[in-house]
Computed example of a mutant assay.
Amino acid sequence: MFSCSTMMHIPTSQFLKLSKFKPIPDPRCKTKVATLSMGCFWGPDSLFGSIKGIMRTKVGYTGGSEPDLPTYKSIGDYIESIELYYDPSKITYLDLLQVFWNNHDSTDKSSYRQYISAIHFHDKEQEQQARDSMKKMEETKSNSIQTLLMPYKTFYDAENYHQKYILRKYKIFLESLCLNDDEIKNTYAACVLNGYLGGHISETEKVRILDIGLSDEQLRYLEACL
């Protein structure tokens, strides 16, 4: 289970200036949506941002019933979650579920509802695939799976400082991107960079970094970071 308290502090850049970002347009494709909960949402935001076929990610709160809008400091019965916009021609919902199962402890019964494991299905097809994948996972576990399968409810975006949390740690680099808070939350470039700076993108996948329009100076900085 991802835990906010165990996330490592990431140092900011030692560069005084960086060339400004000249982004290419976000890839044009029809996307589908998946919504998952696997503990603190900072880690999954970076993890899924590194995966080919993920176009956008954002973190927030869902799965609750209380009438007041949830916030991080007043979350009520809502659950920290991540919303994924993916290209189904490059990655499937079942692929996303496999990443979900492999990257948190689904047998952990959190004492805080905020951090429970859950799959929020958007339609009947997602529900059936979630149930089938969970059944397969149960066959591999010695302890019972605690993951909840829930119909999707309204997703409330988390506060801006939670969106692309790892990318925001590199403050000078982030300033060079010239992205506003809405663009940090919703653009493909921010999604990929958050995955890269979380250490998830492999050497063979680094070509995706080259495709988003960074300057040579920004690329050298990224290399220095990792």
Rank of each mutant, 00 (worst) to 15 (best):
T6S: 13
M7Q: 14
P11E: 12
T12R: 01
Q14S: 13
K22Q: 15
P23W: 05
P23N: 10
P25I: 11
K30W: 03
K32H: 08
V33M: 09
A34V: 10
G39V: 05
S46W: 04
L47T: 04
F48W: 08
S50A: 15
S50D: 04
I51G: 00
I54C: 08
K58D: 12
V59K: 03
G60P: 10
G63R: 01
G63M: 01
S65G: 15
E66D: 14
P67T: 10
D68I: 08
L69C: 09
P70R: 07
Y72T: 07
D77F: 01
D77Q: 01
D77E: 04
I79G: 05
E80F: 05
S81I: 02
I82A: 01
Y85D: 14
D87Y: 08
Y93D: 12
N103L: 08
H104R: 00
H104M: 02
D105C: 05
D105W: 06
T107L: 11
S110T: 08
S111K: 14
R113Y: 06
Q114H: 07
Q114Y: 05
A118N: 00
F121R: 06
D123G: 02
K124P: 02
Q126T: 10
E127H: 09
Q129F: 09
R131A: 15
K136W: 07
K136D: 11
M137R: 14
K141E: 13
K141C: 12
K141P: 06
S142M: 11
N143W: 08
S144K: 13
S144N: 11
I145A: 06
T147K: 09
P151R: 02
Y152V: 10
K153N: 12
T154R: 15
F155P: 08
Y156D: 11
Y161V: 06
Y161A: 03
R168Q: 15
K169C: 14
L174M: 13
E175P: 04
S176I: 02
S176R: 04
D181I: 03
I184C: 11
I184N: 05
T187H: 04
Y188E: 10
C191Y: 06
V192E: 00
V192C: 01
T204C: 07
L210N: 14
L210E: 15
I212M: 02
I212Q: 00
S215V: 00
Q218P: 01
R220L: 11
R220V: 00
Y221E: 15
E223N: 06
E223P: 00
E223R: 04
C225T: 04
